[in-house]
Design a binder for these strands. Structure first.
Lengths: 300, 300
DNA sequence: ATTCGGTAGCATCGCTGCATGATCGATCTG
DNA sequence: CAGATCGATCATGCAGCGATGCTACCGAAT
């Protein structure tokens, strides 16, 4: 592999016109520069300098190496300065894992604001289930994640990750206007024992919470339909196929759902509360970039 | 300065997921890789890896260094392969010094042909008087040159340069159609003793040859007008201000000269012959690029 | 012919980077 | 819960390589 240190010496020879001048410019001895050039010639197998008169002239290969390599050297320098700048500024590239409703309801507006307040910071979003997101952050495949946990469902994050609550939100029961619950101020978990559910797939956090709501009642929720996205839930509810528990975050306008308007009824006893958290590795939690991202999401 | 060898190891860690795997992939011991990463951290002052569990994860700075540095590494590899390819192929960049009439009459068409036959070869042209051109080639400021020498006027090139004749051409006497010589088959140097000349500036090779033509006659050419470019000569001749000795190479169409058509009369005894040569440093005279350029010019 | 400027080559020294083996910490297993 | 295993790091020894300083040599200028 070509040694960039030696390449810099060769460039100095090209610019200064002689080995001594180059050595003086770089603070080396002429012999050192000569040996570095020799090393380049050994590494590439091509001659770099040729003696002419009592001086040297760059060979064709040498001239080309300098011409092309100069760009490399400046790239390396700018890379190095970028590295230091991004350690103190909110700049660079962050990979954020999010879950679906947060993507549209929370992350998108936050990133839009961030794009103007921190123009040097680039964030790429990947949708992931919370446990996957946490695993990705833990192993470095993501830099941070937005995760959620329903009420008391524990979300255990590894020791080297840091978690801060971004917001708390709740879910409502969504029904058709002609449903018996449509006019109610609120409904309780006990009221819901007999209803037919449109639920999220087995294994999702939302599904877990639905099951947990039935704890102590001895019953299990009757799930008739399964859909991953809440917009699909709304369509199924509008079609009269069941009711759904839909979080407010990222929820579509219920009045504009195809198939007729729907209504949301607050649920109490227990209130289905969801905690949305920001997770990042503890080591970079204090970095300006991560801090800026976390605060942008907290403001949202 | 960042060591690219160490950067390659860091990239391997990022790709393989662990120090041992990276070491195995690169043929090092894990300790060596660990030490290289340590060196990167020392050079940049930023942490690159952080321990998590019994493995490692790239830090923010490390991830960024890999992301940005990968481009640098591939650039370096392509630079290296370019270097070797240009040593065996006609490719890259050559700087050619030429004199004015050759630029339009010889070099331009040759380069046009070369552009299609050797698309990887880029040639930039600079107009120079022959002696300047030779000096530039000798000192490496040009890679090759097209030079000319009139008849027996010696053109001494340094030992480390190589000179090959590209073409020989001759000059004609250019006069107005109403000039006494206009109808002649040819004229001799003796015939020209009394004429009034439009000549090139003192110090040019063309001017030297004009003087040389008078050697042995005891006379000196009567130069009334001096112009650097032969198109100006033609205008002056057309205006009836004298006659001129104009080489055929790169000569404008005499019938289309503003101020009336002109005629060319061959000169004999001696025939004003000009030798056009290609000059390059001996060390790169054999390279494919220079060979291609020389042959393109020889075909012209 | 001599001097001067400049590069290449050589012997020596010092540093650095790799390998080896040991240590520490964390996970997995019986 | 203890032992085993795996992975990273640390300490040490060694080898190689590059810088230094000197000398030799070459070309150009005086």
């Amino acid at each position: 592999m070509i040694d960039l240190e030696a390449l810099r010496s060769l460039r100095a020879v090209a610019e200064e016109g002689s080995v001594v001048a180059a050595a003086a410019a770089l603070g080396y001895t002429p012999s050192a520069v000569s040996q570095q050039v020799k090393r380049l010639e050994r590494d590439t197998g091509l001659p770099m300098l040729e003696r002419v008169g009592r001086g040297v002239v760059l060979s064709r290969a040498g001239a080309q190496l300098v011409e092309d390599g100069t760009r490399l050297l400046t790239d390396l320098e700018s890379l190095e300065s970028d590295l230091h700048r991004q350690a103190e500024q909110a700049a660079g590239h962050l990979r954020l894992g999010t879950f679906s409703t947060a993507t549209r309801g929370l992350v998108a507006p936050a990133l839009a604001a961030l794009a103007t307040s921190e123009p040097l910071l680039r964030v790429t979003v990947t949708e992931l289930e919370p446990w996957d997101a946490i695993a990705h952050v833990a192993t470095g495949r993501q830099d941070a994640a937005v995760v959620h946990a329903w009420g008391d469902v524990a979300l255990d994050v590894p020791e080297h990750l840091e978690r801060t609550v971004v917001m708390r939100e709740r879910a409502d029961l969504v029904v058709r206007p002609d449903h018996p619950f449509a006019g109610r101020e609120s409904v309780t978990a006990r009221d819901l024992l007999g209803v037919t559910w449109v639920a999220t797939p087995e294994g999702t956090i939302c599904r877990q919470w639905l099951s947990r709501m039935y704890d102590g009642t001895g019953a299990r929720p009757r799930v008739a339909h399964v859909a991953g996205e809440f917009d699909s839930h709304l369509a199924l509810v509008a079609a009269g196929l069941g009711v759904s528990l839909v979080p407010r975050l990222g929820r579509s306008d219920l009045a504009a759902v195809p198939g007729g308007p729907l209504v949301a009824v607050p649920v109490v006893e227990p209130v289905p509360t969801r905690t949305v958290s920001f997770v990042s590795r503890r080591s970079m939690a204090g970095s300006p970039a991560v801090t800026a991202l976390r605060e942008a999401l907290s403001r949202g």
